[in-house]
């Protein structure tokens, strides 16, 4: 592959962020398997997790090839240290209740749909192909989670209160979607992917009408910022990694 020779560290980082977002949220959602409030949602959350982990496999494999140091998807997924993960903090937060889970899925799927749409014209052909494929899945996740946000928000007093509490808790973390450092500018300039900030108006236009329909109050933006995408994670990340990495750390190189 010629791409192997021309990939910049910023380019690799950009792909890793997308791969890690899908990996870590997929890992979180898999915790619901067998525990969801109804069977249909158990299947929905497990299927969403499966799609996300599938996307993570494609993205991490691609990142490994761009890096050109012989690391495969498994080595990237299971053998990095916490600070080398590039997922946004939102994806690593604990599931809490079903309300917080679906509100997070909704906020994240909206971001993923917009990002994958833009990546269709990426100068990285492999990334464009992965995005085009994953977009179909992300759209389905968005529609499914969006319906639940409306059901819960515009539901009973209790479901409304829980959905609003979930939104209040999660909203400040979404600012991180649009945060950038100089590396991101280089990626945008190279036509690899959109500048993160450019997605913000579209994202709000996508999520706010649904939140309004759900009779939820959209919180105001605050100065609170998280930077998991730059490797600075919350206290929840270590616990998640301990579970996720256990098998590979105990039996290095183990294969199914």
């Amino acid at each position: 592959m010629t791409q192997q020779n021309i990939a910049t560290p910023e380019h690799i980082e950009y792909v890793l962020r997308m791969g890690d977002n899908a990996l870590i949220l997929g890992q979180r959602l898999s915790e619901w398997c067998g525990h969801a409030p109804v069977l249909e949602e158990d299947m929905a959350l497990a299927n969403t997790a499966l799609d996300l982990i599938g996307q993570a496999r494609l993205l991490l494999t691609h990142a490994g090839k761009l890096e050109g140091q012989g690391r495969d998807e498994d080595q990237l997924a299971f053998l990095r240290v916490e600070r080398d993960y590039r997922n946004v903090t939102l994806t690593e937060l604990p599931n809490e209740d079903f309300g917080r889970t679906v509100v997070r899925n909704f906020l994240f799927a909206a971001f993923q749909v917009l990002l994958y749409q833009r990546l269709a014209t990426s100068s990285d052909a492999e990334l464009a192909a992965i995005a085009a494929k994953s977009l179909k899945e992300a759209r389905y996740h968005l529609s499914h989670a969006g319906e639940w946000v409306i059901r819960l928000g515009d539901g009973t007093e209790l479901s409304h209160a829980r959905a609003q509490a979930a939104l209040d808790y999660l909203w400040p973390y979404t600012a991180e979607f649009f945060a950038a450092n100089p590396a991101d500018d280089a990626v945008a300039a190279a036509g690899i992917g959109p500048a993160w900030a450019s997605l913000e108006p579209e994202w709000e236009a996508l999520v706010v009408p649904v939140l309004n329909e759900a009779t939820l109050t959209v919180p105001a933006r605050t100065p609170f910022r998280t930077y998991g995408k730059f490797g600075r994670h919350s206290e929840h990340m270590g616990h998640l990694l301990a579970t996720m990495q256990y098998m590979q750390r105990t039996y290095p190189g183990a294969q199914w």
Binding site: E40, A44, Y140, S143
Partner: peptide
């Protein structure tokens, strides 16, 4: 992006051909 749609489009039953059908779950086996 797909619009939010609570009522899924009716599909034709593969057994009897009726379109009087309803969606039980957005995800399956």
């Amino acid at each position: 992006a797909q619009p939010i749609r609570f009522v899924a489009k009716a599909q034709t039953c593969p057994r009897c051909g009726s379109t009087d059908t309803e969606r039980l779950s957005e995800f399956g086996a």
